[in-house]
Nucleic acid binder design. Structure first.
Lengths: 225, 225
DNA sequence: GTACGAACCGGACGAGATGTCCACTTAAGG
DNA sequence: CCTTAAGTGGACATCTCGTCCGGTTCGTAC
């Protein structure tokens, strides 16, 4: 992964060997990102071409390629801040999403947040995956690590095999198709929540301690009588 | 959807206005499919171009485009027979896969068969989906209908939203990534089986799972009071 | 066996996208 | 100012796509 992930803001993050970005360069970067954002939102993100972005931003091809090798990278840069925000909340946020809740609840909360993110930026997410390089992206590695740790904590089957399975429904194409068919974000979230609770549940009769005995608390306790 | 799905065999299916395929045409079709099959297997299926196929098959571009609008269609034609076979077994096959078993078992069996198919023809499946037109394909509609009926039978939450979710792990990119990471088909099958049983766990004594919010459906009741 | 029309073939062609290259411009520091 | 190097933009060569059409071959009727 390139360390040039600070493409978005431009001014912060002047690393050691990096002299500092010139003013005109920073302005062009901003123009590129702004113009690209509009293009992605306006038409099918997968149809946006490097030429389009260059023209819309009012810069030459060379200038564009200087920073971004393809349109997917541009979309990724636009998406970056949102993903970082979610990542932070996963690590240090309030319980349903952050540490403290049961694995099933945390997974369900993660699903809900991802659905929010997909819904808000479906154009960017689609645009960022031209060519299914999805699994090469840094963000995907993070999601995987997170989900995997939840699976391990819940002792739910083979974590290695299950992780990608549990992440698969979050593929942007899947969500886009669901929306296209008329499903609401709430419906999708609910279905994913059901998935989370279905899989991260101790098999009945298993002698294994209820995973996170403290965990599954909330719900069952509330429900029981 | 084009009705030209009989591209593969060539000789059967002579519809009303279709006179019959000429001998030279049939031969070219065979050459195209043979050559394309080798190309798909030899390199990244998504990199195979129409030019490549034409050259490898020893036919001109025009001849190729006469039958197949793009490489995805060629891969689809090669895949067709295998998918049909599986579809037949789903409808009329022996119990674990066909009718007779519980929804969870049938879903697990379906997963296992799909993993087999993916593993045997991962190159074709990847090649058939250039551009995520996956959801437009006839086969996907069939898988969806099948899974949906199982979900309905098991009364597992909102079938509309859950169907695509349950189908998502079968996306070829997901499976390819899992194999790339060293997982065996058996591991993946096992994980999917766990998924099937986790989600389609029959809610004992429950009339119905609450489909709505937070997927609590079936869970609490199932977990016995 | 021959002749004819329809189906078929294959390569040329134009449009459009990609990624690179390099002469020119301009910001930033002395 | 004046120097330096980062930054710029558009031309270029290449590739792929999809279509078009003159020429060829099959299948059939005679």
């Amino acid at each position: 992964m390139k360390r040039r992930t600070d493409l978005f803001t431009g001014q912060p993050l002047d690393e050691h060997p990096r002299p500092r970005e010139r003013a005109d360069a920073a302005q062009n970067r901003a123009r590129i990102l702004t113009a690209a954002g509009k293009l992605f939102a306006a038409r099918d993100p997968r149809e946006v071409t490097m030429d389009d972005v260059a023209k819309a931003a009012g810069v030459g091809r060379g200038t564009l390629y200087r920073r971004y090798p393809d349109t997917a990278s541009i979309a990724q840069a636009l998406l970056d801040e949102h993903e970082r925000a979610l990542q932070a909340r996963l690590l240090r946020g309030e319980p349903p999403l952050g540490p403290g809740a049961s694995p099933a609840e945390r997974l369900a909360a993660f699903y809900a947040s991802m659905v929010e993110l997909l819904d808000a930026h479906i154009d960017l997410v689609l645009g960022a995956e031209a060519g299914s390089l999805r699994y090469a992206t840094g963000a995907y590695g993070f999601w995987r690590a997170h989900v995997r740790s939840l699976l391990v904590e819940a002792e739910a089957g083979d974590p290695d095999a299950l992780t990608d399975v549990m992440l698969a429904p979050l593929a942007p194409e899947v969500y886009a198709e669901q929306r296209r068919r008329g499903l609401t974000p709430q419906q999708v979230s609910a279905a994913l929540s059901g998935l989370a609770h279905g899989v991260l549940r101790p098999p009945p009769g298993s002698r294994r301690a209820a995973p996170g005995g403290r965990g599954r608390g909330g719900r069952d306790v509330g429900k029981r009588e």
